[in-house]
Design a protein around this nucleic acid. Structure first.
Lengths: 171, 171
DNA sequence: GAAGATTGATGTGTCAATCTTG
DNA sequence: CAAGATTGACACATCAATCTTC
């Protein structure tokens, strides 16, 4: 053996590489399916899903954080969905007139029901039965531990639960 | 119980969401560290690392596949690294004059040694001791199983091992 | 002056079309 | 005409600067 056995280091590098590749593969595939079946990108689906999850409306800044987007990114995407698809509207509240609220329209909800089906189908196909329930849950909790340990930003509070867009009920 | 308990579906959705968030967090952090300490982006580091891993040279197309990049993306990034940093040169072989080879320069190797340290430091910080060796290995094999099961492209052959850029030896 | 959001300039990556060589 | 690579046009996301409201 050499003087410095980087066992843990190698395992970390391998884990990162696997995560990187899996994520790229999955997101690419999901994006393709969503575009084909629902006429929207993954990012757009996510935006609608987050809105639905938050009772149909959210302030731009919160939306951006929930989506892991920059503020301007959120602005641009909402703008597109608003005046290119009519799936979202922006309104200003009188309580705090600095804030802009993005709100799901009926058309947006309709589009979302389509995209949710497409999304779940894509996920089901990608995971198939390659991992059992136990493995899925283990991966999830492990990754969430990493996220929690490194999420040293987001002052407001809610963050870990913000992206669970597709569970209709928590049953 | 209801008639359709989407247990597996929920677990899959949660796993995807965790992977999505973890990946975004990690890559963002790694990118920041690399830019600060080595003056290059994660994509650029990956490109150099893949070249090193392939004995310092690779054809553009293979490079693109290894990086999960489009062909044009590889062209653009190599072009930048070539005439903006001098870390890579492009040469054409006389054997098959369609192909372009990207080749690591001495300056590129030098830059890579710096970025490798920064990269490993970032990884070490992100994973820290939050996961043990067993968990790291479990995650890795699980994700690799998913990748293998869904990688229904890449005709040439090599793919799974193409991105193990930072292991100097396989020990 | 700080919080919230938007806009201008810019970087980065993709697709479709093109050029060259086999 | 297929394989390999490059280019033009474009989509998307970011940062820094700006504008408005608190």
């Amino acid at each position: 053996v050499t003087s410095e056995p980087p066992d843990r280091t190698n395992a970390q590098l391998a884990a990162w590489a696997a995560m990187f590749r899996a994520n790229a593969l999955f997101n690419g595939r999901i994006d393709d399916v969503l575009k084909a079946k629902a006429g929207m990108s993954l990012a757009e689906h996510e935006l609608l899903a987050v809105l639905k999850y938050h009772d149909g409306r959210a302030r731009m800044g919160d939306l951006a954080r929930a989506l892991m987007f920059s503020k301007s990114g959120a602005t641009r995407l909402v703008a597109k969905l608003e005046d290119h698809n009519g799936w979202v509207v922006r309104t200003r509240s009188s309580a705090d007139r600095r804030a802009t609220w993005a709100e799901l329209t009926p058309a947006g909800r309709k589009a979302l029901t389509t995209s949710e089906l497409a999304f779940e189908a894509a996920i089901a196909e990608l995971f198939a039965t390659h991992l059992g329930l136990t493995e899925l849950r283990r991966i999830t909790t492990d990754l969430e531990r990493l996220i929690a340990a490194n999420d040293w930003e987001a002052p407001g509070g809610s963050c870990a639960e913000d992206l669970a867009p597709d569970s209709h009920d928590v049953s």
